[in-house]
Amino acid sequence: MIRLYALPVVRLVELTTDRFERAGDDAYLTIERNPVLLPPKLALLIEQQIARPTVRSMLRPPQDGRPTYLLPGVPAHRPITAQRIVNKLRKHGLEVISARNTAMLEAVADLPPIVISGLFGVSAGSAHRWARFAQDSWTDYLAACTNDDAKPPERS
């Protein structure tokens, strides 16, 4: 979800199972206040996690009607720590900052900054800076591509 939706790890660990919803063949996860359409494979993974949560504690979460965490920690009624997620991702060669930055650049190319602000929980100013950065990066890239010197050599 970091790579797809630029979700900060601290928000990822706060997600609860009640934020997941199926509507026919579509599945949604509410991030902040926005339901986000999930790719089918990610929706399946989330459904499996909800059906069989990984619990590493003998203490079970209280059955008081409150939603459980999507990624339970120890004890299970608390979320896993953000640092633990970061460590697990690094163990598999996945850097959180670069993944989130890439997702943010892709998002600002498709969505207005005000939507980015609400969806990803960043300030409006930050969303505008990201949008300007993405636009500047593409402008430089396109300018370089139209430069005759930058054209790749022809193959024979």
Rank of each mutant, 00 (worst) to 15 (best):
A82G: 11
A82N: 10
Q83V: 02
V86F: 03
N87D: 14
K88S: 14
K88E: 10
K88I: 02
L89C: 13
R90V: 06
R90M: 15
G93V: 09
L94S: 03
I97F: 03
A99Q: 09
A99G: 10
N101F: 11
N101K: 07
T102V: 02
T102W: 04
A103F: 04
A103K: 02
L105Q: 06
E106Y: 02
E106G: 13
V108M: 12
V108Q: 11
A109T: 08
L111Y: 13
L111A: 09
P112G: 04
P113A: 01
P113W: 00
I116D: 10
I116G: 09
I116E: 00
S117G: 04
G118K: 13
G118C: 06
G118Q: 07
L119H: 09
L119F: 12
F120L: 03
G121F: 05
G121P: 05
V122R: 00
V122C: 09
S123T: 13
A124H: 06
G125M: 13
H128W: 03
R132Y: 01
F133W: 08
A134V: 11
Q135M: 07
D136C: 00
W138Y: 03
W138R: 10
T139G: 11
T139Y: 02
Y141C: 08
L142Y: 00
L142A: 08
A143Y: 10
A144R: 15
C145L: 09
C145F: 07
D148E: 12
D149R: 14
D149N: 15
D149Y: 10
A150D: 07
K151R: 12
P153F: 12
P153N: 04
